[in-house]
Computed example of a mutant assay.
Amino acid sequence: MSQAEAVRRPASAMWQLSLFRSEIALVFRRWRTLVLLGVLAAVPVLVGIAVKIETGGGRDGSFGEHGGAGPAFVSQVTNNGLFLVFASLAATLPFFLPMAIGVIAGDSIAGETASGTLRYLLVAPAGRTRLLLAKFATTMVFCVAATLVVAVSALLVGALLFPLGEVTLISGTTVSFGEGLVRALAIAGVVAASLVGIAAVGLFVSTLTGSGIAAMATTVGLLITVQILDQFPQLHAVQPYLFPHYWLSFADLLRDPVYWDQLWRNLALQGLYAGVFGSAAWARFTSRDVTA
């Protein structure tokens, strides 16, 4: 390796890190992002207050008139505030979390095009591939941040409104509160990973248009459409290939022993979507005329 190449490689690595930091700062300083995170943080508050009011009349840990017939995990919240984390993630995963990811991913490239800043980004020595990777990595960071906002908000609200203690798992096994926290963290990780598919789809859509609003609306529209398709029994043959099909498999982490089958299928499916739509986004972005 020549001395010039040795100098160039650290400089290139520093540029990539600088580009990634710049993208992170750009996303998390926007008011839209802060509003999305605020809405996500408010969901556990609303769920916790609703459960507290509903069970305030002295009902024995039940929710609604039929006790355990409420949403998953909700009937356990009054016995242990940690279950508010699981209930809130189950409540936000079908729509609120993926919608927020769809907004961020859909706007990633199209928003830059609409504002006229994309051509200036490409003048810098980033390259289209590196820029696309930075955009996708930033979206992944937002996936983790959004999921943690829900989990932390739920944990704080659960600790304020309900008792904390040993956790009784779905299988009936009782574990310590510390192990329950570890499982909650693992569940948050699985939920964040479950959003990779919609992030890749949103990134691909973002390369197809020069309008950020159109890209965001299209991504959210696709999310709603796929969610609807996943409910029809007649489509059972294709449903295992729809990215939201295994989203709620995170509940299997609350079993002893853990049921890994659907968890691995979920992660593999998200990886498949990331590979397919990430490649499609790269093919489109690297061949598209965005500097004219």
Score class of each variant (00 low, 15 high):
I224F: 12
Q234P: 03
F243C: 00
F250Y: 05
D256Y: 15
L253K: 10
Q231P: 01
L248N: 15
L229P: 03
H236W: 09
L253H: 07
W282P: 00
F277G: 05
L235C: 02
P240V: 03
Q234G: 06
Q270W: 06
Q270K: 12
Q227H: 10
A274L: 10
L269S: 09
V276F: 03
P257G: 08
V258P: 04
L242S: 05
Q262F: 10
Q239S: 09
L223W: 13
L229T: 08
S249T: 02
Y259M: 03
Q262V: 06
L248A: 15
L263W: 15
F277S: 03
L229M: 09
W247N: 04
R265K: 15
Y241C: 00
Y246I: 00
V238M: 06
Q234T: 07
F285Q: 01
V238P: 00
Q262R: 15
P257W: 02
A280C: 06
L242Y: 03
I228T: 13
Y273C: 01
S287G: 15
Y273K: 09
L248Y: 14
Q239I: 05
F250T: 01
F243G: 00
V276E: 07
V226I: 09
W247E: 00
P240H: 10
T286D: 13
L248G: 13
H245V: 00
D230A: 15
D261N: 13
L267M: 08
L248R: 14
D261G: 13
T225R: 12
L267S: 11
V226M: 08
L263A: 06
V276S: 11
Q270E: 13
Q227D: 04
D252R: 15
Y273T: 01
L222I: 11
T219Q: 10
D261F: 12
W260K: 11
L263F: 11
A283V: 00
G278H: 14
G271V: 12
L253Q: 03
Y273H: 11
I228G: 02
D256E: 12
S279G: 14
A237S: 11
R284G: 01
W264D: 01
A274Q: 05
A268Y: 11
L235N: 09
P233M: 05
H236I: 03
F285W: 04
V226D: 06
L223C: 02
L242I: 06
D261Y: 15
Y241Q: 04
A268C: 02
L269E: 09
L235K: 13
A281T: 02
L235G: 10
A281W: 15
D252F: 12
D230K: 15
L248F: 13
Q231Y: 04
L254N: 07
G278I: 02
H245K: 07
Y273F: 09
L235P: 04
F277I: 10
F285M: 00
G278M: 07
F243T: 01
S287C: 03
P257A: 04
Q262Y: 09
Q262I: 04
T286P: 01
L222N: 09
L242N: 06
V276Q: 10
Q227I: 00
G278D: 05
V276W: 14
V238R: 12
L248K: 14
Q270C: 07
F232C: 00
R265F: 05
G221L: 05
L263D: 04
V220T: 12
H236K: 14
Q234F: 12
